[in-house]
Amino acid sequence: MAADPRPQVLAGGTDFMVEVNYDHRRPTAVMSLRRVDELRGWRRHGDRLTVGAGLRYVDMLESEFEVSAPALAQAARTVGSPQIRNTGTIGGNVATASPAGDTLPVLYALDAEVTVSSTRGDRVVPIQELIVGPKRTTLAPDELIVSISIPVSKGPQEFLKIGVRNAMVIAVASVALVVDGDNRHIGCALGSVGPTIIRCSEAEAMAEAEIDWDRLHLPDPRVYETFGAMCAAASSPIDDHRSTSRYRRHGVYVLATRALMRAFEPGA
């Protein structure tokens, strides 16, 4: 890649090949990662998970992975179809940087750090600094996403998605909610309702102050809907062929409210 930055990186190919098939991309040189087994695995060390960029969605459905990263497993399960989940990778999801990338709200909510490699060395980039716009990243032409680091789950996690059917659907709106019971922290991020994934910092802070952290309960049940409304207010959706902005914003309200209800039971 350093010698000749022209080769286009091919991970699973589920986005790449659609562009080639529709003549939106004409590769003259391709570097396939298919046989780079070093990128395929994941490992746990202490309270962090290192997820190889080549990990396929289907690999994230294995129970051992699901225990450590439940929302990521939930998101992977909603991707496409068996055919797509057998092919697509988490590194490809990050590099494509679609606002509708299903794993991305989870990675934002978890403050994921992406390790990017080139002959100049490695750099570790927070996901929200790697992705700067719809399908735009700060990756240099000679850089490759190698792995993604996330904290091991320390509390309830949810990923919820709206689309026109249960399978094979690009999200109209999605919400990821992750709870860190040790540090009394909530992470919440929205997909498909802005140019990039949107973090809901104000809603997170509001809910953190209302939670009974010793019991993981929510004493004031009005907070669920307040949280949903604050997430909806943080969203910045557009009208397009998949949905209206109004429906998307309402979807965020419903999903965020529901996610908080699933994470924290009501009552003192």
Binding site: R34, Q83, T87
Partner: peptide, 10 residues
């Protein structure tokens, strides 16, 4: 897999 999404050479 979907063969339309596999680069044949790869």
């Amino acid at each position: 897999v979907c063969s339309c999404l596999e680069l044949a050479a790869a």
